[in-house]
Nucleic acid binder design. Sequence first.
DNA 1: TAACTAAGAAATTCTTAGCCC
DNA 2: GGGCTAAGAATTTCTTAGTTA
Lengths: 129, 129
Amino acid sequence: MGLGARIRGLRENVNLTQKALAEKLNIPHQNLSNYERGFRQPDYETLKKIADFFEVSTDYLLGHSSDTKTVVQEEKTSYNVTDDPDLQIAFKDASDFSEEARRQAIDFINYLKEKEKAKGRKNINTDND
Amino acid sequence: MGLGARIRGLRENVNLTQKALAEKLNIPHQNLSNYERGFRQPDYETLKKIADFFEVSTDYLLGHSSDTKTVVQEEKTSYNVTDDPDLQIAFKDASDFSEEARRQAIDFINYLKEKEKAKGRKNINTDND
DNA sequence: TAACTAAGAAATTCTTAGCCC
DNA sequence: GGGCTAAGAATTTCTTAGTTA
């Protein structure tokens, strides 16, 4: 997923039109259209404006998500379920989610759990599906 | 402090010359010189290469938010894990996942996180003009 | 050697207007 | 209204070579 798709996704999540968002960012809406379709790339100033507006990192917008370890390194709690720092952070993030998002996170993890189980049992079945 | 100063600082920290770093980044050393002096701005691809090389975030390079490398972490006092027992269980489960599945879980939660942030912003800009 | 500067070439983006659904 | 496209203008960057300490 590229920069354009991320901008578009964020914009649609807040139900803004290109023109409306462009106005808030003080840029022509044609430019925003070009950014979202990947035909142009905003300069750094505009990139930061977009990141600020949506309160996301530029790493996220640029798809530089490969950790960057920029995150809060908190001490391990007594309730330490994992050694994976990224998972810990995700866990804490999810704790602050709305109930709906929390539910989605739980569902997805349960889905992965089933998948993991199936993987562990791969020798049992000869073929399926 | 701008992008150029940050790049220069990182480079000097590892005792590399402009030419040596430029070679590792596969760019002309003149370009690097222009970046460091703030006369030119690297494209996103080069920016990410620089961030990867020094293992810093693009946010740090762009001066978008302080973090990474030299800087200390922001504190997040909220320590309460969660009240949601289902979420606790889900994360205990996730702790035992394979690395691949754990990564998928983290990615999905990060995705939800962006969505949550965007939604929170949504209420602020409902009507205008 | 290390770093900076200059100038024409090349590439990218911006602006303005118009088009489609 | 909402979003996309086109073409010339404007701006920025790249390349190559030369300069300075």
